[in-house]
Amino acid sequence: MIFLTACEDGDGDSSLATYVAPEEDGGDASRISGEILIEEGCVYLDQKNPTDNLRVPVFPVDEANMEDEVLVHNQEQYEDGAPAEFRGGGWNSKVGDARGGDAFIDSLYLPDRCDDEALVFVVNRAG
């Protein structure tokens, strides 16, 4: 069972979706790559493919945070437009559907400002 929560900034809002990850690293998983897009209060991964939606990466809570407008994941910094590759997996739920209860996990937090048409991608714990 995976539980998701959010890292909140000072005003109680967050641009970063996170979850409490199990201790193991998650094993072999899919890889996803693209550019970080920090837009209107949400962190996305833009795969630069016209047939794919933007993805909202959901990070292990103890491995990622926002520092100003910079994503920090496993001590690496990703500014808006930076190339990135993550290991994990997703399902073909759009953010809007996942908010409506169509999710394979019990507890899911997605920033309110994320586009309802974006797809969710759960980032595995680094291993």
Results as ranks from 00 to 15, higher is better:
Val56Arg: 05
Asp116Phe: 00
Gly96Ser: 05
Arg99Ser: 02
Asn53Met: 02
Ala64Gly: 14
Arg87Tyr: 08
Phe86Gly: 04
Glu69Asp: 13
Leu54Ser: 09
Val95Ile: 08
Pro57Cys: 01
Tyr109Glu: 09
Pro111Tyr: 08
Pro57Phe: 00
Val72Lys: 06
Glu76Lys: 13
Gly100Lys: 12
Gln75Trp: 03
Val56Ser: 05
Asp52Ile: 04
Ala103Met: 08
Pro83Trp: 03
Arg87Cys: 06
Arg99Pro: 02
Asn65Thr: 08
Asp106Lys: 03
Lys94Ser: 15
Phe86Ser: 10
Asp52Phe: 02
Glu117Gly: 08
Gly90Glu: 00
Gly96Leu: 00
Lys94Tyr: 06
Gly81Phe: 10
Pro111Leu: 10
Pro57Trp: 05
Asp62Tyr: 06
Leu110His: 07
Gly90Pro: 02
Ala103Cys: 03
Pro60Met: 05
His73Tyr: 08
Gly96Pro: 02
Glu117Thr: 06
Leu71Tyr: 01
Ser107His: 07
Asn92His: 15
Thr51Gln: 09
Glu76Asn: 10
Tyr78Phe: 14
Ala82Pro: 00
Asp52Leu: 09
Gln75Asn: 15
Phe104Cys: 07
Asp116Gly: 10
Glu85Cys: 08
Cys114Asp: 14
Asp97Arg: 11
His73Phe: 10
Leu54Phe: 11
Pro83His: 06
Val70Ile: 15
Ala118Ser: 10
Asn74Leu: 03
Gln75Leu: 09
Asp80Gln: 05
Pro111Met: 14
Gln75Ser: 15
Val61Gln: 15
Tyr109Pro: 05
Gly90Leu: 01
Leu110Trp: 12
Asp52Tyr: 06
